[in-house]
């Protein structure tokens, strides 16, 4: 490569980030080199601090810097219900709705047979541990409605139901603000199945 070794290494490291190809890595590297030293130091320090201080909550497995995490420590949360999500970002999405007041469990992935990811790679054992004391009345499976998410939900339901805990799946169908005319057949079929009485 024509670049000095230090720049080449920076580009190579940036290239290892998800969604960053060689061209983007090159653009980011030159942006960093043009920035003031204190800006770059702040960025590097933030990355290091996050890596050193963030860990998985011992209860819900969400990312946190305190043990237990703020949601698990909140006495106002309903501990009889656990909402299971794929990733930490899904907790944020659900919290933004302001509709759910129970607790969470983050799996950190989904079963993806074609990628060789089986149930053993997820935090399913930790969830089953939480169900042992009998305080949980409902587990809501909120994995994505794609093949991997469905497989994960089906597999977990199979493990949870014998424990006598109510196991539910989030609804699927027409999105709010959507147009029936533009909905595909699979979504429409699901929406019809999940219809509810009005009024």
């Amino acid at each position: 490569m024509l670049y000095p070794k230090t720049i080449a290494r920076l580009i190579e490291e940036l290239c290892s980030l998800p969604g960053v190809g060689p061209k983007t890595a090159q653009r980011l590297a030159f942006h960093l080199l043009r920035e003031k030293p204190e800006r770059v130091e702040a960025l590097a320090a933030a990355m290091l601090e996050a890596k050193q201080r963030i860990f998985s909550c011992g209860v819900c497995q969400n990312l946190t810097d305190v043990e237990p995490c703020l949601l698990c420590a909140d006495p106002a949360r309903d501990r009889s219900s656990i909402l299971v999500v794929e990733e930490p970002k899904d907790v944020l999405a659900l919290e933004r709705t302001g509709e759910y007041r129970g607790s969470y469990h983050v799996l950190h992935g989904v079963i993806s047979p074609m990628d060789g990811i089986g149930p053993g790679a997820l935090r399913i054992g930790e969830l089953l541990e939480r169900l042992k004391d009998g305080g949980v009345k409902e587990v809501i499976l909120a994995t994505n409605p794609d093949v991997e998410g469905e497989a994960t939900a089906l597999y977990m339901a199979r493990l949870i139901r014998p424990l006598g805990v109510r196991t539910t799946r989030i609804a699927r169908g027409i999105p709010v603000g959507g147009d029936l005319d533009y909905a595909d057949e699979v979504t429409l079929a699901r929406a019809l199945e999940g219809r509810r009485e009005v009024g």
Partner: peptide, 14 residues
């Protein structure tokens, strides 16, 4: 995206 017109028809095995 939730409102995609293609999503349901491009699920694996469809």
């Amino acid at each position: 995206r939730p409102g995609s017109r293609l999503a349901g028809s491009l699920l694996p095995f469809t």
